[in-house]
Nucleic acid binder design. Sequence first.
RNA 1: CGGAGUGUAGCGCAGUCUGGUAGCGCACCUGGUUUGGGACCAGGGGGUCGAAGGUUCGAGUCCUUUCACUCCGACCA
Length: 511
Amino acid sequence: MKFSTLLIPTSKETPGDASLASHIYLLRGGFIDSVGDSGLYNFLPLGKKVLDKIRFVVKEELDRAGCQEVALSFVTPESLWRESGRLEKYGRELLRFKDRKENNFVLGPTHEEMMVNLIRRTVKSYKQLPLHLYQINLKFRDEIRPRFGLMRGREFLMKDGYSFHVNREDMQREFAHMEETYKTIFTRLGVDFRVVEADSGAIGGTGSKEFMVLADSGEDTIVICESCEYGANIEAAVAEPKVYDEGVTYISVKMKAHYDEGKSKVIAFVLPEGAELQEVKACKAVGANDLSVSDESAQAPIVVIEQSLGAAVDPHDFDAKEIFYEDISSVKEGDRCVHCGGVLRYTKGIEVGHIFQLGTRYSEALGCHFLDENGKSVPMVMGTYGIGVSRLLAAIIEQNHDERGCIWTRECAPFIVQIIVANMKDEAQKAWGEKLYYEMREKGIEVLFDDRTKRFGSKMRDYELIGIPYAVVMGKNLPEGKVEFITREGMVKEEVGIEDLSLFVEKRVLS
RNA sequence: CGGAGUGUAGCGCAGUCUGGUAGCGCACCUGGUUUGGGACCAGGGGGUCGAAGGUUCGAGUCCUUUCACUCCGACCA
């Protein structure tokens, strides 16, 4: 396509509130446009092209893996959320509204309820199982504090898949199959990622794994083993238990645990000195939705003791009604791996995928049953699988950029090659540029032709900012029959003879 | 929700203390000179100064109220 006709509003200046490389470059490169600084974004032609590329890879691999694409209604009746018991738990992140008849609806932040509702109406027999349906659709979460551009917008594009099985074993087979499929997808997209064990959060369920794009700016801390494949989100990471003897000093942290319907309890968490309370683990240990610091002076009626303290503390020291022993402390750098004894380290990651072994959490709540071989009604066993498609766009740039701008991976680039005519008033440069442009188009190579009358400098800046993998410059050496071939990564420049240009470009671009 | 701050042209900001013609840079339009690293000259368009009320001869500026957003902490693909 011709640059002069496309809406690509590049900008020299960095937008005020953008601090993350991906946010800055996507805005400056004219990929996205923010809507009123409130976590909402428009995708402009370049951004939409990248989004479609990612979507295509995701769809192709999922279809190959036997999943079926559907599109569920974005607006979902609140009653389904009430039925599943998630209305309260999801809370303020749900955007709720009424229609003209005063019926209550929510904008879907994830679609377990909708999907289960669909399946319970249409699937009745074990003969129809297993089934794996997915969609690539908008989601809305009314985030408390949207930031970092596409990384944490309120409206975002997500691929969400749901599988239904006759038993746990079959669900676990699909879970493993999806782990492999996701690895294929992220590898194809060209990102450096790591699969880690995770907490299941508000979705619920047991086994869960996250796919993390490794980047220093990531919001998640992940723990990885130096010696083996073990990796886990800090929220779920476990280490080889330490052994404490009786003389150990310990600290007690008093927290207020919040439950459904506004109920709360004060709980004391007891940790060895120097250890840190891991709130997600602590929530899980007491079945709470949330924890906050408690300033109550009274003795807490419930005490949870870090399990590794075991016999080292005397439970009679606490005047408590209930005492539990749980793993509630954060893994620290230098701790030992439970699998191989290797040293554990921290690193930062961006969560771009999450797969869950859901079990019967939703099928039971929503009455999604099937008849088995014996004619018995049984709840389906489910798995659920997500990929943050719009977030991936940001994650790819977070991992692939330099001080000049974006460096797109081949599968995601909006175009594969850009032709830059240094001076449009130079008839020879213009003619050779056009010739190559039409040849590339003829061969089905996605090409962006910078035919603007701007000066060379600003065209190069725009090229570097947008980050298309390759460029050809029709410039000052044209009279000697030479043009320049540029590889964006590293800005490597090569001189190429004009006679072999078309073949040369085709070979490099398609290799 | 707790703490800090900001609202003035499409974007980034000055002007507010000390009331008196609405400013600057970038972007945009016209003409000309330029054309290998964000050119230059000349001319031009664009604003209910976040909103409402008040004080005053006169309010972007002072007073009151209100709304919005940003930044730092607890949630998530």
